[in-house]
Nucleic acid binder design. Structure first.
Lengths: 191, 191
DNA sequence: GGCGGCATGTAAGTTGTTACATGATTAA
DNA sequence: TTAATCATGTAACAACTTACATGCCGCC
């Protein structure tokens, strides 16, 4: 039986439901504004756009953008909007997470404390950079007052990121503290 | 250039570094104890076991388990242990998360509040079931006093899950509250 | 002139899931 | 006897990444 997942499809339909866009713009939005909860590569986006066009859920708005450059904007059709809201109503598929950091941590009795400490610090640094972006996005959203669109929804998604990233950060702090104490304890034994 | 990821490989090596196991046992451990931070399918485990054996990082300990059933226990070799700790020391690959719930939430201006409410409630229920398991695991770990192995590491990984799942739960509570208010506000307009 | 950003696309490979096939043992 | 669990495995497919190819535009 086919499992009707293909989330790339619905990401595209979702973004085009806001405004016409090119594949390149879709990628940029995902990379910048969605990066903390989604990812796509060109290798998925472009072929999917073609497929969607052939199925008439989106249509191509010829070429030409602001400058004279090549660019194909796509627009969603009614059929596409219908399919989008159908998908939105279906139960959420069980999500699969894979934290390589935790896998390494679980088996880290094989390596020095220091190495694990560095992994955790790197994780913390990465996520702190993202945390700064959250605050920026939030300001932007609160400043833009054009309600009626998905303004509130965007804030809800953002709030997830802020909460979860804060939990990451607190955990990192605790673990760094713990590993530091371990190190000291081991150091003491040698005195 | 080849990207030396293949995390299934290291999951197997990691688990076999604790004790000899069958493919079936590996799958069970991942499904039960690792499910909140990892997942594997038989379609990955069995072929990888074969590959690992041919590369002499693990060896097969013939057949026969407790009963007279067919079963192949595998044991890690020194070469395997070396490769494991080499991998453990390498920086953690950038993790890719994909929260379908958040994608749907982001585009949920196309559907009724009620539907989204149900999605969030389902998410909360799923994660609350996992939260109950955390407490059980924690008790088990704190009861088993055979230190020297990866006891502390397991507790650290567990602590990640508890913290992050708590953040999930709090977020769900807030969102459910918010969506309920939305519903009421809309209801009032009709009176 | 060269670099970075805009823009589209594909081929090859890897990774991962699902469904199926098989069969023994155990417990109800 | 029949369902569940133990146990191994594979084939087909789906999903996804990476690296590459191409070329224009605008700026320094």
């Amino acid at each position: 039986m086919k499992t009707a997942t293909n989330r790339t499809r619905y990401l595209i339909l979702g973004l085009l439901s806001e405004q016409p866009m090119t594949g390149y713009e879709i990628k940029k939005i995902v990379d910048i504004r969605f990066s903390y909860f989604w990812s796509e590569s060109y290798g998925q986006i472009y072929p999917e756009l073609k497929k969607l066009e052939s199925q008439e859920v989106i249509t191509s708005l010829g070429a030409v953008s602001a400058s004279g450059r090549d660019s194909k904007k796509y627009q969603i059709t009614q059929k596409g909007l219908d399919e989008l809201s159908e998908w939105l109503q279906m139960p959420v598929e069980k999500e699969v997470v894979r934290y390589e950091l935790l896998l390494k941590l679980y088996f880290s009795n094989h390596i020095a404390c220091d190495v694990m400490l560095k992994h955790i610090q790197a994780f913390q640094t990465n996520h702190r950079q993202q945390q700064a972006l959250f605050e920026e996005f939030k300001k932007q959203l609160e400043a833009s007052s054009h309600t009626g669109n998905n303004h509130q929804q965007a804030l809800m998604v953002l709030s997830f990121g802020r909460k979860v990233w804060k939990a990451y950060d607190e955990w990192c702090e605790e673990m760094i503290h713990l590993l530091d104490e371990n190190k000291k304890a081991k150091g003491d034994q040698h005195e």
